[in-house]
Simulated assay, not measured.
Amino acid sequence: MPSNNSQHPRFVLLDGLRGIAALFIIQRHAPSLLGDELPSSYLGVDLFFALSGFVLAHAYGAAIADQWISALAFMKMRLFRLYPLYGLALFLMTTFFITLWLSNVPTPLDDLHRPIDLQELAIALVTGLLFIPAPFSLTLNGALFLVHPAWSLFNELVANIVYGLWGARARTKHLLIVVAVSAVVLVFAAAEFGRLHAGFRWSEMHAGMARVFFSFFVGVLIYRLRSRLPKVQPLVAIGCLAFVILILAFPTPKPLKAYFDLFVVVFCWPGLLLVASRCVPDPVTGKISAFLGTASYAVYVLHVPLLAWTEHLLPHITDSRAIPYAGLVLMAAITAVSWYVTVHMDQPLQRWFKNRLRRPQVFRPISDSGSTR
């Protein structure tokens, strides 16, 4: 997820990588509009985690390590960074299911198309407001959150807590241990599920946590190592963006899926992040990346309710003759709406909250001790 700290320069190309990955997530969740899901598109979530670790280490790592920002203040900033747009998505999903219930229409987001259970909806709304998983998989959508992508946001918040309390001050060798242990769990999860598309149900929680802890702390480590690497030419930026598209659309045979997923998460995404973090794109690529990066979080968290409402209000949009053209138009519309909502609603709220957290009692040094890195 993008940083909310505007005092630090942006790694613009990383914004572009995140934005492209978000578009592939839309494609994955809109088969009735865009055709069959691309086989590796879910690996965009692991790229999100790695980018988040890098960006948060850049924006907050030194301040947390030097105790200018407490772990509590850091988590307040993370929650407020995620919550406004997540709250909007939660509202849209709740009203969507209530509308279906009033119309006596079963949920289209569950394979069994079961009727809307208001008691379950109430439980899911309460747990969703608290940003914690429901105690059971919801029949509403087969997930743990009303806003389905929120499973990854919850997992990332767990990693953020560990980073704020310990990771920002931890020595590199200790972070390597976390990464190594997570990699072992990833291997077992890939063998168990036949791929790394797991983590959004209680029975898969170990896989989801391994995905976030591995990629997030790899991102932190790459940030610490970035200055030792040479800068690369702007032309490489186009190659980085194309590489993400290639990986997320790659048609991997099912018997090789677990091996491919592990290779991408353990080697490809870290290597891509190493190169992209040392590349300043040309002006045109930079503007495209900045636009996609600005919209990316809203795209990720709002696309499911926007898709659901669109298909409910415009049922003919799923006509086979309109695929994939209507879906491509809708994808562009979701991206544009996400950019607008981010710039005109979310960013002003972020500035307001950040100004409140600049008060001396929040940002004063806790002690005179420096970083242990």
Results as ranks from 00 to 15, higher is better:
240 C>A: 14
56 L>T: 08
205 M>K: 06
35 G>S: 04
362 V>T: 11
135 P>V: 11
318 T>I: 15
55 V>Y: 08
360 P>D: 14
146 L>T: 02
30 A>K: 02
264 V>K: 10
184 V>Y: 11
301 V>M: 08
362 V>W: 15
23 L>E: 10
347 Q>A: 13
347 Q>N: 13
283 P>E: 05
115 P>C: 03
127 T>S: 07
267 F>K: 00
38 L>S: 09
358 R>H: 15
166 W>H: 02
4 N>H: 10
248 L>E: 05
154 F>P: 03
98 I>K: 04
122 A>H: 05
165 L>C: 10
316 H>Q: 15
216 F>K: 12
132 I>S: 05
140 L>A: 08
258 A>K: 04
66 D>V: 05
112 L>M: 11
309 W>E: 10
69 I>N: 11
240 C>D: 06
370 G>Q: 08
156 E>M: 09
134 A>Q: 07
119 Q>T: 13
370 G>P: 01
241 L>T: 01
55 V>F: 10
132 I>P: 03
141 N>G: 05
275 V>I: 15
184 V>G: 09
98 I>E: 04
296 S>T: 10
36 D>C: 00
37 E>D: 09
328 L>A: 07
185 V>W: 12
285 T>R: 07
158 V>G: 02
11 F>V: 14
345 M>N: 00
258 A>N: 03
92 L>E: 01
115 P>Q: 03
184 V>A: 15
271 G>A: 06
10 R>Y: 10
219 G>Y: 10
189 A>G: 09
205 M>V: 15
180 A>P: 02
136 F>S: 10
16 G>M: 09
304 V>Q: 13
9 P>K: 12
76 K>P: 00
249 A>D: 06
114 R>W: 07
115 P>W: 03
223 Y>K: 08
357 L>Q: 13
329 V>N: 01
13 L>C: 06
61 G>W: 07
332 A>V: 13
338 S>Y: 05
133 P>I: 11
344 H>F: 12
243 F>T: 09
220 V>I: 13
